[in-house]
Simulated assay, not measured.
Amino acid sequence: MNSTNFKTADLNLFRVFVTLLEEKNATRAGERLGLSQSAVSHALRRLREMVGDDLFVRGQTGLRPTPRAMEIADTARTALKLLETAVLAQRFDPRVDQHAFTVAAGTYISYVLGPLIAERVMAVAPNVQVHFRSLYAGMTEDLDTGRLDMVIGCFEAVPGRFTHTRLFDESGVWVVRVGHPAVAGGIDLEALARLPRLGVTGGNDDPDRTSAGHIGLRRVTSWGERYALGDDARQPFSVQDSFSALSMISRSDMICILPRRLAETAAGRGKVVMIEPPAPPPPTPFGAVMRASDGADSPNGWLLDVCREAAEGL
């Protein structure tokens, strides 16, 4: 594309382009945009001429973006969202406005942070709803398209079209059940190192890719291996989350790493004994991810402030 072509470009063509990326079908894209299939095809032909690339090829599952289309996809999405935000000049008033948020977060986040978020929302925003759902494959694409407002978790990689706000840090601690014979006479780390271990996998650790094929959020699914306690320990069982691990630990002689806040609650109820790791690593950061185009005055900007305030209460 040369500068002359772009100066005379119809920016609506990029709305068609982004919708085709998401729908992978010209008919469905037209339905979303209020255009006929022929109008979508015409717009795509004009965009192909402007860019100098086919942009999409037909595949078994619908239209498949070319490498060039994938190169410009993130920029096109972000630019359209920024234009929408600028034109609408949306300012959210939680005291009177109605809004429903959808937040993807792990069970532990909902347990630790959810009550503090609910307390604040119910106190100042009577018409607001916040719906938590589990982390899932495809959440990056839902965040892109607005079907999801925020993802809260621990991430190894966050694409540049999103923002990441650190909310709180968490560390781990070893736990065994109350009455475990290995701690009856005091804490012996060498003896504990020989105990069978319960692993916590955290679920699928594959990168979350969008349907357009580019990398999405990549989250940390397990950080317990950083807490050394001997080498080559036997791990006869693993579970998908810390709450399942807590239940299994309370009825077995295994040892396990749990998030500190959960372990402290369980220890306070007489369920487990906490054992500090001999060489603890740095705490693990947890944060909120949103679209970079969500401004401070938008509903999502307000929700982020609520999450920050809630995290300060941990």
Score class of each variant (00 low, 15 high):
S3Y: 08
N5P: 15
K7Q: 10
L11A: 09
N12M: 01
L13T: 02
T19M: 07
L20S: 00
A29R: 06
G30S: 04
G30H: 04
L35P: 10
S36W: 09
V40N: 11
A43D: 15
R58P: 11
T61F: 08
L63T: 08
R64E: 14
R64A: 11
I72R: 03
A73Q: 11
D74Q: 02
T78G: 01
T78C: 07
L83K: 03
V87C: 03
A89I: 02
Q90F: 00
A104W: 11
A104P: 14
A105T: 08
G106T: 13
I109M: 11
Y111M: 07
V112D: 12
V112I: 15
L113H: 09
I117L: 14
V121Y: 06
V121I: 12
V121L: 09
N127C: 05
Q129A: 08
H131K: 00
R133C: 14
S134D: 14
L135S: 06
G138C: 03
G138W: 01
D144L: 02
G146Q: 07
G153A: 09
C154W: 05
P159F: 01
G160C: 06
F168T: 08
S171D: 15
V173D: 03
R177W: 07
R177H: 03
H180D: 15
H180P: 11
L192T: 13
L192W: 00
L195D: 08
P196D: 12
P196S: 10
R197W: 10
L198S: 04
D205G: 15
T210L: 08
S211V: 10
A212W: 13
H214V: 06
R218M: 12
R218V: 14
R226N: 12
A228C: 12
D231E: 14
R234V: 15
Q235G: 12
F237P: 11
V239M: 10
M248Q: 13
I249E: 08
I249L: 14
I255A: 05
R261Y: 10
G270D: 12
V272Q: 01
V273S: 10
E276V: 06
E276F: 04
P277F: 03
P283I: 06
S293F: 05
D297A: 00
V306G: 05
V306Q: 06
C307W: 05
R308C: 04
G313L: 14
